[in-house]
Amino acid sequence: MQKGIDKVVVLEVEDIHKKYRGQDILKGISFKVRKGETKVIIGPSGTGKSTLLRCINQLTIPDKGRIWLEGEEVIHTKKNINQFRQKMGMVFQDFNLFDHLTALGNVEIGLTRVKRMDKDEARQKAIEELKKVGLEEQANLYPAQLSGGQKQRVSIARALAMDPKVMLFDEPTSALDPELIGEVLEVIKNLAIQGMTMILVTHEMGFARSVANEIIFMEDGKILESGPPYQLFNNPKYERTKRFLKKITELYGE
């Protein structure tokens, strides 16, 4: 364990289990995320990486296990869960922008409807957030009028507007054309630099290497190994990790 990161734990995940249609998807996942840390989760598809993210903000309810956000246990009751979800920003692989709202509307709606913010104030904040991802000029365009990269940046702005304690990224660039990946990674990288606490599922190994404080390698519903990027890339404990990294690096490049 890397010394020096002795900051507060923002998110703690303990022994998460999830079955789906009789199949074990998650078989006991535990880890801690400290303030300002970027954790990158990698692993072959079908190992439950997305399910894990969804369990964290209870979009999928885990069968077993506990989660704490800033020391408070995340419990799925109707009243409670909406409070927790506001504090966890989620970015989906396929954006899931609200199709009937403009870019601005997408960023605004959480502020006005969930945070009950005053309309003008919400507008100001939404414009700010769009500026941060470089899209203030696209504010009045609808999702169908945006490119994939722009859509994903709006969805990041939408999540950030809620002032989350932690951001969850579920393969944010997997649905993008190669030439659009860069602009999204740029935004995420800036967030990391500014000290946002993040969990990121991705296949972009070069990016993972440059941005992660810790990489978690998941396989078959478990964490096989984890550690700082240089350790995992240069000196993995398991042959399996080595093989995966080799294969994915060949496939996606650095």
Binding site: Q83, F92, D99
Partner: peptide, 20 residues
Amino acid sequence: GQMMAAEALGMSRVQAILYI
């Protein structure tokens, strides 16, 4: 995904149905 994104923002079921 629309419902999921709405819930991820912290909307209740009813809010998600009404607004999204």
